[in-house]
């Protein structure tokens, strides 16, 4: 692992951050960069570890986010006594998954401007309203409600979350945190950003790309269903017919 760490260090420092400050001090690696979705997938845990000179004035924030989509939020309304979907707002660049961890509550060391700039924390996420100029006035005035509704739903699904105090320092330089990907995590590419913060400034940052993808039978079935939809449908019928016939033969004998 230490070899990998050194390789990662060299790669990251040379490619990603050649900045002037103390960015050079931040080293990060993940226990794996692919979260495989297989038949037995029930979620996955990853270990993120890194080193940064910890002088008791620096804090570490870890943000996992991705893949980005348009997100539709609909407001329920009563129609003839029944709850139906009414007004809707589409937000752009909504991460399907967003998770943040830090060594202590971010409110204690991060100001809002920096949080907004780097979209650190759920409240700082910058979703723009799609086709905002075409929305009726009463919706336009209320997009904040729709945004809050989106965040609540995502949190309830376990797809937006944060854990403060979940980044642990070991000794003077090492830190680690556990990243959890729930069973309903969407397939796609994720960015894992680590920020070292001191005096409300980012003094080091590091990005790793992480892929959540289907493997084996899962990937095979999914790809086939999307690429050869007609053949997939026909095979589904043939399988069902064969199973129905088999059942009637098997149970007639008994």
């Amino acid at each position: 692992m230490s070899n990998r760490l050194i390789v990662a260090l060299v790669l990251c420092l040379s490619i990603v951050f050649g900045s002037q400050s103390r960015a050079n001090d931040l080293v990060v690696d993940l226990s794996k960069t692919v979260v495989p979705i297989t038949t037995s997938f029930t979620g996955s845990n990853l270990l993120l570890f890194g080193s940064f000179k910890n002088d008791n004035k620096t804090d570490i924030i870890v943000v996992v986010r991705g893949p980005f989509h348009d997100g539709i939020v609909r407001q329920k309304k009563r129609v003839l006594g029944v709850w139906a979907n009414g007004d809707e707002v589409t937000f752009e660049d909504v991460p399907a998954y967003y998770y943040m961890a830090s060594n202590r509550p971010v409110e204690e060391f991060l100001n809002d401007d920096l949080a907004k700039l780097r979209q650190i924390g759920i409240d700082s996420l910058d979703f723009s309203v799609k086709n905002a100029d075409q929305l009726p006035e009463h919706i336009k005035a209320n997009t904040g409600q729709f945004r809050a509704g989106l965040v609540r739903n995502k949190q309830a699904d376990g797809l937006f979350g944060r854990k403060l105090g979940n980044v642990h320092f070991k000794g003077d330089t090492l830190f680690r945190t556990d990243l959890h990907f729930p069973a309903n995590v969407p397939v796609g590419e994720y960015g894992v950003d680590v920020y070292a913060i001191r005096d409300n400034k980012i003094i080091g940052e590091h990005t790793t790309i992480l892929a959540v993808q289907k493997f084996g039978l899962e990937a095979g079935i999914y790809d086939f269903a999307h690429r050869n939809a007609l053949a997939y449908g026909l095979i589904a019928i043939i399988l069902a017919t064969a199973a129905g016939w088999l059942a009637s033969v098997l149970f007639r004998k008994s």
Binding site: R74, Q75, Q145, F146, G149
Partner: peptide, 14 residues
Amino acid sequence: TPGDMYTLGMLGGH
């Protein structure tokens, strides 16, 4: 009365 008055629709755009 639903627990949340707002629901998510399909996520599009991939």
